[in-house]
Simulated scan of single mutants.
Amino acid sequence: MSTLNNTSSQVSSLRYQGELFLLAVSFFSRLPVPANLPYSEARMNQAGRYFALVGVVLGLLCAAVYSLTVLLFPQTVAIVLTMVFSLLLTGAFHEDGLTDMADGIGGGMTVERRLMIMKDSRIGTYGAATLVMALLAKFVFWSELVSEPQFWIIIVVAYTVSRATAATLIYDMPYVSDADTSKSKPLANKQSTLEVAVLLFTAGVVGLYLGITLAVLIALVLLVFRATFKAWLLKRIGGFTGDCLGAAQQLSELLVYLTLIAFFHCS
């Protein structure tokens, strides 16, 4: 009887973790999940542990699309098609965050005004310029890296570690947005040590596929970025919003590509 209870408990625990993962998938992508997936604020916070794992899934899908499209089209065309697929896959979720953060912090003179602008769905000059440059940078960086034999691994690693970096900001920063007026999805705004550990473990394991040297180099660059970005956000708005996490993901991803380009160029 005890063995049966233990087995039932393990199955229930696995089902619960699976539901948390699917909740993370629904938060970060347009991939279909069961309509009756349980949701609560506590579950959303716990689902944060799987944000990096969702990055693995999204990265693999984008790498697969590139691998298929490059068989039919030139590399630059395949890159554009893969970027379009990525935007459709996530609903431009992170790009929207980057745009709104740029508008808010760039255009607001007070904390209250910055937060108010971030909640506005309209795009201003700061946001438009930032979005264009971010997409252009991704196209150029991918064009530089596409000749590398590990290009598909680079995509998966960048998608994974960038989401891990962004998600860890939840751990030691206050959430400053008003949940009742926010235009974004319900957000994980609390994080335990376990959630951070799972995020970092996932990012570390995936990063090692590029080799220990590159994994350590990327980790150091992202640690510096995280510390700098955190200090900047605290100074400008006193904490983080969902838009800031989207911006952190986009900037972290671009930094991964830029770091690898510099490494390969200097090697």
Rank of each mutant, 00 (worst) to 15 (best):
A63K: 02
S143F: 11
M101S: 12
M173L: 11
D103K: 00
Y171K: 00
E148L: 13
Q75W: 10
V70P: 06
A179K: 03
M44D: 09
L135C: 13
T125H: 08
A52E: 05
R113M: 09
V54A: 08
P149W: 04
Y126N: 04
V156I: 11
L72P: 14
M44A: 14
L71C: 09
A166V: 09
W152C: 15
L135I: 04
K119A: 12
A47Y: 14
Q150D: 08
R49K: 10
Y175N: 09
G107A: 03
A52I: 11
V54C: 10
W152K: 13
D178S: 12
V65D: 05
R122A: 05
E144R: 11
T165S: 10
M101W: 11
A158Q: 05
L115M: 05
A158L: 01
E148G: 11
M44F: 01
E112P: 12
T165Y: 11
M173N: 13
L131K: 02
Q75Y: 14
Y159V: 08
D100V: 03
V56N: 08
Y50Q: 05
I123L: 06
G48N: 09
R122W: 03
A167E: 01
G107C: 00
T82N: 00
V54N: 09
I117F: 00
M133D: 11
G55V: 03
T160C: 14
Q75K: 13
L61N: 01
M133A: 12
G59L: 01
V54I: 10
F51H: 01
G48Y: 04
V111K: 00
P174Q: 05
A128D: 10
G127Q: 02
A129C: 07
G91L: 02
A42G: 12
A64M: 12
I105F: 03
S67M: 14
R113P: 06
F139P: 14
D96Q: 02
T82S: 14
V56T: 06
F151P: 09
M173R: 02
R49C: 15
T168A: 10
E144M: 15
V161L: 08
S121V: 07
G59P: 06
W152P: 15
F151I: 01
V161F: 08
V84Q: 04
L115T: 08
G59V: 01
N45H: 12
K119H: 12
P149A: 09
L71S: 11
I153M: 13
I155T: 00
D96F: 00
L87D: 15
A42R: 05
L53M: 14
Y66C: 06
Y66H: 10
A179P: 15
A42V: 15
L115V: 00
L58A: 11
F151M: 01
V77Q: 06
M116R: 09
A92D: 07
Y175C: 13
Y126Q: 05
S162K: 01
